[in-house]
């Protein structure tokens, strides 16, 4: 099975990279971009039947730092 994990900085955590991208879009002439947040997508190839609990543990222990990041995952 394949699982896609999305990791994003939590709301309220400043994302300077997203801000730089927002400025760059403005410089390219794209008006009205009021916010950009940059995150990570991690695809996992897992043994069939891997439980949501195990995937959650992977996210909490390594893939995301829950002090600053939130995550969600989906089977693809």
């Amino acid at each position: 099975m394949k699982v896609r994990v999305h990791v994003m900085l939590k709301q309220g955590v400043l994302d300077p990279q997203g801000e730089a991208v927002r400025h760059a879009l403005g410089a390219l002439g794209f008006d009205g971009v009021s916010g950009v947040r940059q995150g990570k997508v991690i695809e996992l190839e897992l043994a069939d039947g891997t439980s949501d609990e195990t995937i959650t543990e992977m996210c909490e222990k390594l893939l995301a730092n829950t002090v600053i990041e939130s995550y969600r995952f989906e089977t693809i």
Binding site: V13, L14, A20, V67, I68
Partner: peptide, 17 residues
């Protein structure tokens, strides 16, 4: 040390990138 949880908080990308 922050990643191990021995110290609280986290170190983000420098504000000026």
């Amino acid at each position: 040390l922050t990643e191990t949880g021995l110290l609280p908080g986290a170190l983000l990308r420098n504000a000026g990138l």
